[in-house]
Design a protein around this nucleic acid. Sequence first.
DNA 1: ACGTATAGGGTACGGTTGTACCAACTAATC
DNA 2: GATTAGTTGGTACAACCGTACCCTATACGT
Lengths: 197, 197
Amino acid sequence: MSRADNRESRRNDIAEALLRVMGTRGLHAVTMRAVAAEAGVSLHLVQHYFDTKEQLTLFALRRLAEQMAERLKAKLAGTHRPREVLEAILTESIPADERSRTFHLAYTSYAVLAVTDEALAAHPFLAAPDAMESFVAGRLAQAQDDGDMAADLDPRTEAIVLLATAAGLGIAVLAGQRDAESALAVLRGRLARLIPA
Amino acid sequence: MSRADNRESRRNDIAEALLRVMGTRGLHAVTMRAVAAEAGVSLHLVQHYFDTKEQLTLFALRRLAEQMAERLKAKLAGTHRPREVLEAILTESIPADERSRTFHLAYTSYAVLAVTDEALAAHPFLAAPDAMESFVAGRLAQAQDDGDMAADLDPRTEAIVLLATAAGLGIAVLAGQRDAESALAVLRGRLARLIPA
DNA sequence: ACGTATAGGGTACGGTTGTACCAACTAATC
DNA sequence: GATTAGTTGGTACAACCGTACCCTATACGT
């Protein structure tokens, strides 16, 4: 293992530690010292690999987005049928397991923070929903072309509603107001109505 | 004005100042000193009326919930028709004006915080969505009885989806990903499909 | 082989936080 | 009118934050 690889590996370890702290104790608990302790390294080492907290945060956020993309890509592998693709996307938007829970809590926390912190708002991790909306709309249009979805529906509007519903249910699950199973059942029902089997 | 009233009025002023700080600069900016400055009083005065920051926070949160309830009640005055009642509720769930924006930012911020802070999670300000769900489901059932909504739909499920969609759109508006107008248009379209005019 | 960049640890500093303490003033009560 | 409770202010303190600085050891390039 080369030095550069080792360095990158260390940086990933530390970013991973940040996400663990974030997912279990919340954004307010994410301090340089807490991350260092979680990673099992000294405070100075965190500083050594990331000059400032902001850089560490943005690195971890980018990593989170990449992991999410990979998770989705893995789930989408092997199928191109709109119904299955959309079900995978909607499933991923509900924090069902611990990994997904951490992801959603971290993403939501930083998104809320970005509302009043323009330095964070400028970064492109908030662009994902826009891209997702267009993607989902495209799949719905494809389903219409295939004759699997009613022709009088607007794919863009249905995509917006589908994603907003998934986001709302995801937050409710995160907040403990609803369990993941029932949220998933509701979403699947929604999809089944749009694209009957 | 009696002394007790004056005291209560002061407490309200301070809680209001907290909500202003929260709504404009975010949860992280809510410090005892910032609230005192916003209210135009000394730090000690805030301590005098609220022993700890936690008590101040919970008081402000309760006040927020009451204001929301009053806003809704005012909007609901004069009508009992399910369609209009539901439109009022859904409209209120989109942060269109500044007051509503502050409310939603504050509520969302504390809700996210409550995910990892069990002291906050124990308090009942998170119970509102449950009550709202039952209420909306009741109105939908009433619309069914009136013959204004398709009989093969489940009022509870439709209520869940409607509120989740509204919540998801509300967050998107708050985050600046969507403007309030289009979010409201989408919601009204949803309602119109459920209960045609 | 040797100088040097990198990895690593410990500690210090300035700033901010919530909270506590002490003094002065006001107004109601006896 | 004296006293007492309530109101306001200024300041202090311990804890925590992000960051900076100083000191080794290890491993690489020449």
